[in-house]
C-alpha cells in the first residue's frame, strides 16, 4: 500500500495511492498510517480521491488510524468518491469524521464560511 505525505502550514496531507482499501490490505493500511503519522501533526487530512472502493475492513482501518493518532489530534477525510462516501454514510461513520469533497476544500481557510 502506498501513502504519500505533503506537509502544509496547517496540516499533514496523507494521500492514499490505491484504488481500494479492502480486507486484503486493511492491516497494512493501518500500520502504514501509524508510520506515516508518527511525526505528530495535529491535523491529518486523508486524501481518498484515488480510492474507488472500500469495504468494512477498510472502513475499520480508517477508524483505527484515527484512534491511534491519540487525543488532541484530528483525522479529516477529503475527496471521497461516491461509493466510498456511501459506505461512510450508511454506517454513520460520516458523523465522526469531518468530510470534505475535495482536498482544496479541506485546506481552505475556515473563515471562508461559517
Amino acid at each position: 500500500m502506498s501513502l504519500t505525505t505533503t506537509m502544509t502550514d496547517g496540516a499533514q496531507i496523507v494521500k492514499v495511492n490505491a484504488e481500494r482499501i479492502d480486507a486484503a490490505m486493511a492491516i497494512q493500511f493501518k500500520e502504514d498510517m501509524r508510520t506515516e503519522t508518527e511525526a505528530g501533526a495535529e491535523r491529518v487530512i486523508l486524501d481518498l480521491s484515488e480510492v474507488q472502493f472500500i469495504d468494512s475492513s477498510g472502513l475499520g482501518a480508517i477508524v483505527a488510524a484515527m484512534k491511534q493518532l491519540g487525543g488532541g489530534r484530528k483525522l479529516d477525510l477529503a475527496g471521497l468518491t461516491p461509493m466510498v462516501e456511501k459506505v461512510f454514510r450508511l454506517t454513520r461513520m460520516d458523523t465522526i469524521f469531518d468530510l470534505y469533497s475535495s482536498l482544496s476544500e479541506a485546506t481552505a481557510p475556515a473563515s471562508a464560511n461559517s
Partner: peptide
C-alpha cells in the same frame, strides 16, 4: 471506543 469492525452484516 469506536468500533473498528462489525459493519459487514449491517451493510
Amino acid at each position: 471506543s469506536l468500533p473498528e469492525g462489525g459493519f459487514g452484516w449491517f451493510l
